[in-house]
Simulated assay, not measured.
Amino acid sequence: MTPALLVGVDFGLPHFDADLDELSQLALTAGLKPVAKMTCKRKAPDAALFVGSGKADEIKFMAEQTGAKEVLFDQSLSPAQQRNLERHLGLPVNDRTLLILEIFAQRARSHDGKLQVELARLQYLSTRLVRRWSHLERQRGGIGTRGGPGETQIELDRRMISDAIKRTKERLTKVKKQRSTQRRQRDRRNSFNVSLVGYTNAGKSTLFNALVKARAYAADQLFATLDTTTRQLYLGESGRSASVSDTVGFIRDLPHGLIDAFQATLQEAVDADLLLHVVDASNPNFPEQMAEVKRVLHEIGASEVPQWLIFNKIDNLPLERQPLERLDLYEVDGQALKRLFVSAQSGEGLSVLRKMLADEVSQIHSEPETPADPRFALDNFGENSDDFA
């Protein structure tokens, strides 16, 4: 594993990760070994070196002392900042965006997942051609060229990348049509569609496996699942089945290129009848993670889909933070949402979730013209509770 120095810059924005814990997890997931961390405060990024020349010297010294062979920034760097930092430090410099892209490239397994990652990578690369390769400035003249300096290598590479982006988008369009056809087939079967969404490593895949008895890959790491998996869940109480989909996890500062590229995958959430927003109840930063999930759902057009909150991993909560009631209401931006506490690992609370889904499906099929809003169909719930007991 390549030793890496992690750097975070606090610009006074909310949710700054002072401990760089998430960046450290990303680095480990990508196959790097964090050997040191450094944080600093600035009012604004330095145009040339992002952190300024003085702090850049400190980073260089710490990298020499700790044996770091790469420097990772928790924020996105411009191509010029990245190039200048590499020249100043004499080491490869990468940012959070590239790290996430690398992880996605390693984890994508399905055909469409690989296409989506490739598109995002090409879009990122198209802005970085001037970063390291000085040979790209050499000019090339073609046969029949009359006058002029000819086409530079960098222009040629940009055109090749542009062509590759166009081809990949066309292939993704075909994938999107195929998924649309599959969804229409499910709709013709009058299927109730449920999508699991949530912050990465909240336990979505573990919950998915427990609900539908599947064998989707699940691990205690970021972005364990990238490809959407859909299975049928038979709800015995209702005599019907629901279609359940496990989707890619969200994360703070998820690159916009990835959100755009993964539209085909995230469309499952947009077209769902119900979203199960899985939250890691044991994570002290769960409110910020919930806010990030909400932001991405709004960006992909799924913010109006009915949603239940599934607070997972209660088996990791200490006794004093165990909820008084397993089922209650949780207010999000003035809206009361169903909240259920479960442990996908131990199975606690899953029988309640299955019954809730069965009741929901039964109610919708019994009243097709006026389907109930799953956010408010609450019977005999406890008092509202925004905090753990």
Rank of each mutant, 00 (worst) to 15 (best):
Q106G: 04
R146H: 09
D333I: 04
T247D: 03
S191F: 06
S362D: 13
W133N: 13
L222T: 06
N201K: 11
Y199S: 03
V248I: 15
R131N: 13
E288F: 08
D112C: 10
I364A: 15
K43A: 13
Q267V: 04
V352R: 09
I143Y: 12
D157H: 13
L258I: 11
S78G: 14
M1F: 05
R159N: 12
F61W: 10
V361L: 11
I154K: 11
S303D: 13
E86A: 11
A269F: 04
Q75A: 14
G301S: 09
S78C: 07
L89G: 00
R339N: 02
P45W: 11
R121C: 08
R167A: 10
Y330A: 00
I154R: 10
R189V: 05
D220F: 08
L122Y: 05
V71G: 02
R146P: 02
L309Y: 05
R158Q: 15
S238T: 04
A105K: 02
D19F: 03
V51Y: 03
A372G: 01
R107S: 08
Q345C: 10
K355P: 00
L5K: 00
D10E: 05
K33G: 02
A202H: 05
Y217M: 12
G31P: 04
I300H: 09
L226D: 00
V270C: 04
L207C: 05
D220E: 15
S191H: 05
N193M: 13
H135F: 09
S241P: 01
A264P: 01
G239V: 08
